[in-house]
Simulated assay, not measured.
Amino acid sequence: MNRRTFIKYSFLALSTFYGINLLANEQGAELSPLPSIPVGGIIRPPGAITDKILRAKCISCGVCVNVCHLMKYDSIVIAGIDDFNQLGTPIIKDMRDYPCALCMECPRHCPTGALQQVEKENVKMGMALIDFSLCFGYNGDVCLSCSKACPLGASVFEFYNSNWGNQPYINEKCVGCGLCVKYCPLGGSAIKVVTIGQYRKIRQGYISGFKEILAMTEEQRYNLVYNNNLPQIMARGRLIEREYR
Rank of each mutant, 00 (worst) to 15 (best):
P111H: 14
N161D: 14
R108V: 14
A29M: 12
V39Y: 01
C106R: 04
M104D: 15
L22C: 02
Q232F: 14
G113E: 07
T50D: 07
L239N: 11
Y222T: 03
A29S: 13
E105A: 15
V63A: 02
G40C: 08
Y18P: 01
M95D: 12
Y73I: 15
L14W: 03
Q204K: 13
Y138W: 13
K173I: 01
R203G: 03
I49V: 14
P231K: 06
T195W: 03
G165A: 09
N227L: 09
Y226L: 05
Y18C: 06
L224R: 15
T50S: 15
P35W: 03
D82S: 13
Y244E: 07
R44Y: 11
S147T: 03
L152I: 11
E105Q: 14
I191P: 00
N223V: 11
Y183Q: 15
N171Q: 05
G41N: 02
D141C: 02
S36W: 02
C103T: 02
P151C: 08
R221G: 00
N227P: 05
G41H: 03
G40A: 07
A114E: 09
N171P: 01
F132D: 00
G176K: 03
P38H: 03
N161A: 10
L115A: 04
E243V: 14
N2W: 08
C177A: 09
G140W: 02
Y138C: 03
V123D: 01
P151R: 02
K8Q: 10
G62M: 09
V156K: 00
K173W: 00
S75R: 00
E158M: 08
E212Y: 06
E241K: 15
Y244Q: 05
T89M: 03
N166F: 12
G19P: 03
N85I: 11
I53N: 01
N229T: 02
D82V: 10
E218D: 15
G62P: 10
Q220K: 10
R238P: 01
E172N: 05
C146N: 00
R108P: 04
P231W: 13
M71R: 06
F157H: 00
G88C: 09
N163H: 10
D97L: 12
M216Q: 12
I170T: 06
I130C: 00
I59C: 11
E218H: 13
N21I: 14
G153I: 03
G19A: 04
P99E: 06
S36I: 07
Y183E: 15
G188S: 10
L179G: 07
V142R: 01
E212M: 06
M125W: 08
L239S: 05
M1H: 06
I78L: 14
G209F: 04
A13Q: 11
R203H: 11
F157R: 00
L224F: 14
G165N: 07
V175F: 05
G237D: 11
G178E: 05
C61N: 07
A101I: 09
K124I: 06
Y138L: 05
R55H: 12
L115F: 09
T16N: 12
I233E: 02
P35R: 04
D94I: 08
L239T: 08
N122C: 10
K72Y: 12
Y9L: 11
C146Q: 00
P151S: 07
